[in-house]
Design a protein around this nucleic acid. Structure first.
Lengths: 202, 202
DNA sequence: CGGGTAGGTTGACACTGTAAACTGGTGACG
DNA sequence: CGTCACCAGTTTACAGTGTCAACCTACCCG
């Protein structure tokens, strides 16, 4: 009965509590509502205490981004791993990516939507982890490795655009979401398997 | 010789000066650097004077967004208007869209990258104007009108994803930018002209 | 001359992230 | 046992943000 109804540990416990509260705020109220003072008061410490465990607010957000990529990578690997043709596996991966974005828009925002200059650069080491999903896609492409990365990037950009505009509610509401997503995934993935410069109409 | 080396008009002139300075700051230093006090001091008035002409900072940004869409729409219409097949015209439009985003990343950011809940909703009337480009794309699609909007949306999302990730510098630096863009546009536009559910290989 | 009003300013409030200095408690060592 | 150092956290403060309420001032009109 030492703590006064505040969840409040010390040391590593406090760090965890801060991270938990930050994640909660992020998920429930979005990135803009993420403030050091709010986190601190919810967790029962002062705002400056956060700086004992995170170099800056950005560093805290980086930690959340890491969490996000961990979950995303997990989902993607699972989706891609199962049996099926390359195209099928790619499509499952694409669906997993889109689902992640739509289910966790706040995570998606901090992972993909924050401009880097506002974000005091996400460290390159972690960046590489963020690219694992891209590489998973590249391996599935049915083109030479040199082009595989490009094709995979194209798929990623297409999926990202889909998720980003859906999250931002900038897609015409009259469109059926499910059909749109299915078709967008279909075309995006097909591109990865298309021959070099097939200009032909039928 | 009434003004003291500050560009400083009164009334509508001041409003224009504020808008000009806001645009300059946006273009040169990006959205995060856009602050009412900075604009005010650069333009030679107080921060609160901005509120005489704009309901809020968001309203000021809305005005810039309007400018952005005006330019974008102009470019798109020009690109799409000239002669050529539907596919060619669509591709020119797509290129124009991507070029706009890469040449004016700050404009692109406020137009497409700001989440709506952070943005006190861009008014619906202006929103419609923002959709003109989409409709221009839809008209070019070689599918029934009902599907045209969806196909156009898919192209838009693909292009948006491309621009967004390029701007955010989240595209592998080893890739040749020009080739990536060309190929992405190629595939995106091809989708609009593909038959219904062409699953076929070759 | 009197007064209303458009156009701007002053000052304040409630926030934000963050740095420097301070404090209370706990363990180690002479 | 006494003292010293260290560590976790707090206090205080600074510079910045958007925005509102009150004030002030110069001009025009009757």
């Amino acid at each position: 009965m030492t703590d006064t109804s505040q969840q409040r540990g010390t040391g590593a416990d406090l760090k965890r509590a801060i991270l938990d509260e930050a994640r909660r705020t992020l998920v429930e109220q979005g990135y803009p509502a993420l403030s050091t003072r709010k986190i601190a008061s919810a967790v029962g410490c002062t705002a400056t205490s956060i700086y004992l465990y995170f170099k800056s607010k950005d560093a805290l957000v980086h930690a959340l981004i890491d969490e996000g990529f961990e979950e995303l990578n997990g989902r993607l690997e699972e989706a891609v791993a199962a049996e099926g043709t390359g195209l099928e596996r790619l499509q499952r991966g694409a669906r997993a990516f889109v689902d992640f974005g739509l289910e966790r828009p706040a995570y998606y925002e901090i992972m993909f939507l924050l401009r880097p200059e506002r974000m005091e650069r996400y460290p390159a080491e972690a960046y590489r982890r963020a690219r694992r999903s891209l590489e998973a896609f590249a391996e599935l492409a049915s083109v030479p490795a040199a082009e595989g990365l490009r094709r995979a990037t194209i798929v990623m950009t297409a999926l990202h655009g889909l998720v980003a505009l859906l999250i931002a509610q900038r897609v015409d509401a009259s469109l059926d979401r499910k059909t749109l997503i299915e078709e967008a995934i279909h075309f995006a993935c097909a591109a990865t398997f298309a021959p070099r410069s097939g200009d032909g109409a039928s």
